[in-house]
């Protein structure tokens, strides 16, 4: 079943990821392989629902280290984390088709390159492996024999679990799933 604006975000969604700490960017090492963990979205939403930044922003890309995702799509989010906080986004969850190790290495390199250390509160940033979530919700497409995530962004209000925005790209490039499109809806 697809995700729909105004509807509830599904229950029991989990992703595999490796946590990245934003506290000290200098300590982030892309070649250090840490242990993967399970991200339970229900728990994340419960946590966010008690804060004054209750929006969960999910941004999905077809592949880590691929040109559009790496050079255009995700950097604009990472460079503007304070703007996301202003828009009441408490967590940014980046999903890619690849396994948790690849997504984690990619996330670390991107964060080191584009996130500026700040004294202000920034959203929690999570890079996770899609693990079939997008495919199960009609948000994946066949790319050379494998099902890869479509490029999309969605915002979930943790207070009532409704999907406030869903922007899926139908052509190459970043339009409906980009920072400006998301911010204009928040």
């Amino acid at each position: 079943m697809s995700l729909t604006e105004g509807q509830q975000f599904p229950d029991n969604v989990e992703f595999t990821y490796i946590p990245i700490q934003l506290d000290d960017l200098a300590l982030i090492n892309p070649l250090k392989c840490d242990t993967s963990a399970q991200l339970k979205v229900d728990e994340l939403l419960t946590k966010l629902s008690t804060t004054d930044t209750p929006n969960l922003l999910i941004v999905s890309v077809p592949g880590a280290f691929t040109p559009t995702c790496t050079e255009v799509h995700i950097p604009q989010y990472l460079e503007n984390l304070p703007k996301l906080t202003e828009a009441k986004v408490g967590a940014l969850l980046v999903l890619a088709f690849n396994d948790a190790f690849v997504v984690n290495a990619w996330g670390k390199v991107l964060i080191k390159e584009y996130v500026k250390q700040s004294d202000k509160a920034l959203p929690q940033v999570i890079f996770a492996s899609d693990g079939g979530f997008s495919g199960a919700h009609d948000l994946a497409a066949d790319r050379g024999g494998v099902l890869r995530n479509k490029r999309y962004a969605t915002v979930v209000n943790a207070k009532d679990r409704t999907i406030k925005y869903l922007g899926v790209e139908v052509e190459r490039g970043v339009h409906n799933s980009g920072l400006d499109a998301v911010l204009s809806k928040l």
């Binding site: 070649l31 691929t66 040109p67 690849n98 690849v102 290495a105």
Partner: peptide, 14 residues
């Protein structure tokens, strides 16, 4: 079995 983009990034990172 990773795609060429991942492989290239990995080679450089190594």
């Amino acid at each position: 079995a990773n795609d060429p983009f991942v492989m290239a990034a990995w080679g450089k990172a190594l």
